[in-house]
């Protein structure tokens, strides 16, 4: 029984933790999750997202070493994509985290998305909570290589890093909606490469367009705006340049994360009511759907699909018929 593992997980048993995480991933640990929830809220959860090859794993590796040097324990949840064809996956993030091997203060868990599209797996949030309850100081979530719209991590992490490598595209890419909007800290990794300064500049300009600033970066220099706007309490993301493989800029990155943590602790705190509302609705939606699905006969569904296939029935009407009370549903089977 997964729930039997709870006391061992709370006592810091790594094997029990690993086992329980598997149960959570398979969706069979409701009771354990309930029992562990009161023990959560201690770890600071940091999300690391960005395009494939931007250096997320190397950055996680370097950041973890930084925290370990400060005596903090670190757990890493690294997500890689599941094949849409076979359902299998290659989870390869550990390759770039070999420096962390053999350190009892580090726990690394790889997971596959198993069909989710938001950059995380459906169970990542629950796994993070279990790890939190197990007593780690920092939890780093590494998303799949993300494009523009995989923004799920911002709802699970308390501080979100968006990692860019030089050469991200022009500055219109930088003001498009999506992934850059969720950044609390923007990281230009591989900053020793050509174009790093341009990328950092494009990101800074993007931030200034959204946040009225007293001085703007224009023609290569900072210029004072005539009427400086009143300072706002809102968090303005920082842009940090790093070379993760050489540990450059990592202390600055950790400082930016800490600044954001302090800001968030003054503001909503780790458990943001908005994120909790979204979670509650999401879970309720899933539960209601499953409950409702049980009330339907497979025949009803097949008949509707067949009629949609024959172009006799449009999808909108099909849904209306599914949602109609049973007596009306039977009526729906008859041809009009």
């Amino acid at each position: 029984m997964p729930a039997d593992l709870v006391p061992q997980v709370l006592a810091g048993n790594r094997r029990a933790l690993a086992r329980l995480l598997s149960h959570v991933e398979r969706g069979e640990a409701e009771a354990a999750l309930k029992a562990l929830y009161p023990h959560t809220g201690r770890a600071w959860v940091i999300g690391v997202t960005g395009s494939p090859g931007s250096g997320k794993s190397s950055l996680v590796n370097a950041l973890t070493q930084h925290y370990r040097a400060n005596g903090e324990t670190v757990a890493i949840v690294a997500v890689d994509p599941t094949s849409p064809f076979s359902g299998g996956a290659i989870l390869g993030d550990r390759i770039r985290m070999r420096d962390l091997s053999g350190d009892a203060g580090v726990f690394i868990r790889s997971m596959a998305t198993r069909g989710s599209l938001g950059g995380l797996a459906r169970t990542t949030r629950d796994m993070v909570r279990v790890i939190d309850a197990a007593g780690f100081d920092r939890i780093l979530i590494e998303t799949v290589g993300a494009g523009q719209s995989e923004v799920e991590v911002a709802r699970v992490a308390y501080t979100t890093l968006v990692v860019e490598a030089p050469g991200m595209g022009d500055d219109i890419q930088a003001i498009k909606a999506g992934i850059l909007e969720i950044a609390d800290v923007l990281v230009v990794n591989k900053a020793d490469r050509i174009g790093a300064n341009q990328t950092a500049r494009a990101l800074k300009t993007m931030l200034e367009l959204g946040h009225p600033a007293a001085r703007v970066y224009h023609h290569g220099q900072y210029m004072t705006v005539e009427a400086a706007p009143a300072p706002v309490a809102e968090w303005i993301p920082e842009v940090v340049m790093t070379v993760a493989t050489e540990r450059k800029g990592i202390a600055e990155l950790a400082a930016a994360i800490e600044a954001h943590r302090q800001h968030r602790l003054r503001d909503a705190g780790p458990f943001d009511p908005q994120a909790l509302r979204a979670e509650l609705f999401e879970r309720a939606r899933e539960a209601l759907f499953q409950q409702w699905l049980q009330t339907l006969s497979p025949d009803t569904i097949e008949t509707l699909i067949q009629r949609m296939h024959q172009r006799e029935l449009d999808p909108q009407t099909a849904v209306q018929q599914l949602l109609a009370p049973p007596s009306a549903q039977e009526h729906g089977h008859a041809r009009p």
Binding site: A18, T82, S86, G87, A89, G92, S101, G102
Partner: peptide
């Protein structure tokens, strides 16, 4: 992977202890 399994690939030059720790985690 193509057979539907999840493969944790750890790469080259692993010590027995590294392998055991990865298998556990």
């Amino acid at each position: 992977r193509d057979a539907g399994m999840e493969v944790i690939y750890t790469g080259l030059r692993q010590t027995p202890e590294m392998i055991a720790e990865a298998a556990l985690q």
